[in-house]
Design a protein around this nucleic acid. Structure first.
Lengths: 337, 337
DNA sequence: CTGAAAGCGCTAACAA
DNA sequence: TTGTTAGCGCTTTCAG
């Protein structure tokens, strides 16, 4: 490893001169800077961040903790954040929790141990108390999911409204037997979504039969099973409202496998907007979530606070509105009562 | 920040004792270790990695450089690697290059500067010479794409064979007017794929008309335009063979927009296997690439070398075979000549 | 079994 | 404008 001393030796000057020259200190002559920079690139010098940080210089690493990067939600977030942070010379460190609180804790510890400048996280369902403790030592912000325990700064999506609107759409098409397939109420997002569903149903002046299939953890398999259960009911629902990205593909695969005709036999509203939803049958009507914009907003806000040493303790919420994309999978029921 | 000294002060022992106790040195009494560990968790001590590394202890950070994490190829890779590395207590640092060599260089510098234990990268089309120079200082391995310049260790997919097989499939269905839509030959993967296409065509005993649409960079838009150009030909191709993930969605969207009937009007073989390809029309016949397995293999190999100080300089290639998934989008041409 | 002290590469206060 | 020096938190000799 080539250090500042090596360069100093080559140029026959003191290490501090070299350090200052590289830091573009104004007390150093232009001539010296030129020589130093030349020598540095010559020998392939790279500053040792570890040594820097020991002198109190802040790290340029930002931790991102998500459940699973393969989920397009989170990869979109990672991309948006990495772009955003790059412009301010920050690096992103990726951690996956698999929604496991112990893994989450381990990652948080690890990140504090490398002195990250901050942490952006999508918290797990029930974070470990110690996670909160370690997070207190580092600027952090929550994304999508909000856990009171972990802090008050949060960027998220209006989950309640997302399901409120998709359910309203189904009701307005005339459906009166509706099923909801979503995630557990233990997750704040899951809870908000069922709530939106229920509230929408309540606004209806008709009598509406509802079924709720709440699964934890959400997965394509759960979606499939839920559909199977619902279809075996005496009074089949005429419409399905989905409230979890991970469920969606399972639900629509099962519907396709059962050879149901959409929207004639059943209407479906999805959640999230994966590439491919538009290819499914008549196109899947779905709630699109502005994740990319959300992540960018979050990144900018975070950067602002990191750079201005602003505190990230005061409660702050940024709620971003979802948008219903109407495609062919929803229509009036074929034989409404 | 709470340091080893603080704990020493609390317990009225020397810092070195605490350090040793935490490192589980066998010369320290069990009793002392117990006390130290208790105090450490009590006050929320986290080791300062920066200080550690200055003492020559290796970092537990591994850099991952990919073009764009939103591409399911790369998110799958990131996931597989992060799982794999986690088991050995390594963290993944994510860098996106957007296929820009300067950004790539910047990331590589940054990573060496934080003393990452190693770098796993999907190189850009034409890496900067300096990238090679800096990579020499760090254990590294290439994934998917291989650039001679950057080293000899590579884990990839048999791109030639992937297109050889998909083209062969189309030929065996009886097509004689075939178009290829893929990426630039400047990328090693792109070159290998067209080559596979051409070789397959050569094996045919019939006369085969071919069209090649090579675009850089690959994108849905390029796919759409390519389809438009091909459909405006006097003699339209009866089959399309795709050779880039990013092109695929554009191609199939355009075909859908033009209201062509698949496979009656035209047969299509895709590349990669995104969620949703199975939903498109009669299901997209496509080449599936075992990216997850590849990444895991790569991760294990990399770990092995990091931990055993094995050298990563000796040439090594691991080539993983693709698999053709036959769905409904390919059939015999309706009016073969 | 435990303590004292040196030093990793860098920055910044203090000297010149 | 440049040099000297101390010290960040930790590991690791070398001494007790």
């Amino acid at each position: 490893m080539v250090t500042i001393k090596d360069i100093a030796a080559i140029l026959q000057v003191s290490p501090s001169t070299v350090g200052r020259a590289l830091a573009d200190d104004r007390r150093i002559s232009a001539e010296m800077k030129r020589k130093v920079n030349e020598a540095a690139t010559q020998v392939g010098y790279v500053a040792n961040q570890a040594a820097r940080m020991m002198r109190g210089v802040e790290s340029n690493l930002v931790g991102l903790i998500v459940p699973d990067i393969r989920n397009s939600f989170y990869s979109t977030i990672a991309h948006a954040l990495s772009r955003c942070l790059l412009s301010a010379n920050y690096q992103l460190t990726l951690c996956e929790t698999d929604d496991d609180r112990m893994l989450e804790l381990r990652h948080i510890k690890e990140l504090t141990s490398v002195n990250v400048a901050g942490i952006i996280l999508v918290p797990s369902a029930k974070p470990h108390p110690d996670s909160a403790r370690f997070l207190k030592m580092t600027p952090h912000i929550q994304l999508l999911r909000k856990q009171q325990l972990l802090g008050e700064q949060w960027f998220g999506i209006d989950d309640r409204r997302a399901l409120y609107e998709s359910t309203l759409h189904i009701l307005s098409e005339g459906h009166r037997r509706i099923a909801y397939i979503g995630g557990t109420e233990a997750l704040p997002t899951g809870a908000a979504r069922v709530q939106g569903f229920r509230e929408a149903v309540k606004t209806s002046s008709h009598q509406v039969d509802i079924h709720e299939e709440l699964g934890a953890p959400s997965s394509p398999e759960f979606g499939r099973e839920a559909v199977r259960r619902l279809l075996s009911l005496k009074e089949r629902p005429t419409a399905l409202v989905i409230g979890a990205v991970q469920n969606t593909s399972g639900v629509i695969d099962e519907i396709q496998d059962q050879a149901l005709s959409v929207p004639r036999d059943i209407s479906v509203v999805g959640f999230g907007d994966e590439l491919g939803y538009r290819w499914w049958g008549p196109g899947l009507t779905t709630v699109q979530l502005p994740v990319s914009q959300l992540a960018t907003a979050c990144g900018l806000w975070f950067l602002h606070h990191l750079q201005n040493k602003g505190d990230l303790d005061t409660p702050y919420s940024f709620i971003s509105p979802p948008q219903l994309i109407i495609r062919g999978s929803t229509a009036a029921p074929s034989n409404p009562r």
